[in-house]
Amino acid sequence: MKCEQISELLPDYLQGSLSPDQRRTVETHLEQCADCSEEVAIWQKLSLLPVEQPGPASRARFEAVLQAYQAGRSNQPAHNSQWRKRFSSWNVFHWLRSPLGAAAWSAALLAIGIFAGLRLAGPKPPSPDLAAMQSELANMKQLVVLSMLQQQSASARLEGVTWSTRDQQLDPRVLSALLHTLRYDPSVDVRLAALDALSRHSAQPQVRSSVVSALQEQQSPLVQVALIDQLVEWHDRDARPHLEKLRQSPNLNPAVRQRADRAISKLN
């Protein structure tokens, strides 16, 4: 057999997954062909590379993050740990049936009705009307997002945050609701989602300054770490003094302090 054919079998030969017949074919070839047998030899040589051990602090660092994370979660009662279960179709229906949801959807249906009516009434509706309708619909969407962000259940608020990311342009009211969510929402998951949503709008100066001020206010280490990472991602050098301040605050979680230290050195 030629090297070309053998080379197709070699990777499986190396993993020991050839049939006995195929294996014999390869081995016969290897005895005669220096090139192919050297390929096998280098594969076997790779086992000489020693397994390196991570430093002893690695486990402790992980423990600190895990503990911080668990602590953050235990501050949130049952609804947080079970948000996924609550994020069921029942919940969405429940929301739709709530007075606020009903109002939002009635308004949305009305808008769709008017829109359809205008389209059907004239063959070519004047464009200003169309533009007005589109802005009306956009307003409806904002309204839905805004009302969801005010729901009692964390999963509904989480859904509200997700909805807000559907539009490239952020309505100022939605933006300020998201900023409020980032700073004051009682659920860690919702605050993290709000940060993710806001990270797409870093061009808005308000977003950056809110992330910086949230850094001083947040108590959850998981959120603190996410905020620090975000500032590093933005290469926000102005955030350095704030990070310095954070790392000096007493009772700061050691994992957060380490993260802040690394962030400061990266922003240098």
Partner: peptide, 15 residues
Amino acid sequence: LSEDLVQEVFLRILK
């Protein structure tokens, strides 16, 4: 860097 990345992987698993 490798130690940092290992930590990052487990943080992502949590997230």
